[in-house]
Design a protein around this nucleic acid. Structure first.
Lengths: 149, 149
DNA sequence: ACTAAATAGTACGAAATCGTATTAATGGAG
DNA sequence: CTCCATTAATACGATTTCGTACTATTTAGT
């Protein structure tokens, strides 16, 4: 691979990194005081996919060490956003369930983000974003499958 | 804005977030033991843009608090990748200069990443990536300008 | 059934990140 | 020139992230 081609891929991931940082800053500005992006991401995942999943499954979904997930879940539980119950199918394991407060704080955060999306849509209409989403999802899926489990 | 449209933008940033995590994991797997993505990013920035910049300028470029940049730079200096010298134009300030070791470790990391790009290119040819880069850069620029300095 | 390997979660400590407060230097108003 | 608000960097402490080691439980081989 020639250098110019490699630098295209490099720039791609570079842009992804900067966008993530800027997007995360925006998100956290809309979250309740003290709530950070990983907290929200877990709540959002539990709603989007389903709750009742085990901490390990969540850790894998987010590509973080299970010790990190333990810490995140402990914080969310302390604040009353999730319940950690024993897993009836495996006594080593647990299940993560959303509380009404957890659902509420996630839904409110989504509402609070809408003005930002409206602002963004003035310059980047929905169609522009929809054009690039498939590639992003495919690259994500590719990298996701390629990692050693 | 209707909910379906908002969810397009939400999904966009969601994909960005996951891609960043997967991309960062890949990058760090290619870096020398103990070197993490922010270390590499700073070295890379100093080469791509220029060295001799002040810590505060770097903190702003990376959108991190200046205390975080102080810590990152201290680590890079400890490992001999940068020199922190007094800023002749402002005695409160410093300048960050790359050492030959710093340049070398960055260039080697880039080389080590090429096989990953080659693998990626089999499924996602350069042209596909080039198609989406402009939008990513424009959204990044938009968010960058919209933040309160 | 019995033992060994694998698995789920956590305790613990190191490193990173970040907010607040502090120190030193600058620069503008008078 | 003097004063003081602003700025650059850091000290410090709280929280997050993560690697290693450990405990409890399950699974698989015999």
């Amino acid at each position: 691979m020639d250098e110019a081609t490699a630098s295209i891929y490099f720039r791609f991931f570079n842009e992804i990194g900067i966008l993530e940082q800027l997007g995360r800053a925006r998100l956290e500005a809309r979250l309740p005081k003290g709530m950070i992006a990983p907290h929200f991401s877990v709540l959002n995942h539990l709603i989007r996919v389903k709750d009742g999943q085990t901490p390990l499954v969540l850790a894998r979904a987010f590509q973080v060490p299970k010790t990190s997930m333990t810490h995140t879940l402990a914080t969310l539980q302390q604040r009353g956003y999730i319940d950690l119950r024993p897993n009836p199918k495996d006594a080593r394991s647990k299940q993560v369930w959303l509380t009404p407060a957890g659902r509420a704080v996630r839904n409110q955060a989504i509402l609070d983000m809408t003005p930002d999306f409206v602002e963004l849509a003035k310059t980047f209409p929905r169609e522009k974003i929809e054009e690039v989403l498939p590639l992003l999802e495919n690259v994500r899926s590719f990298l996701d499958k390629a990692r050693d489990p």
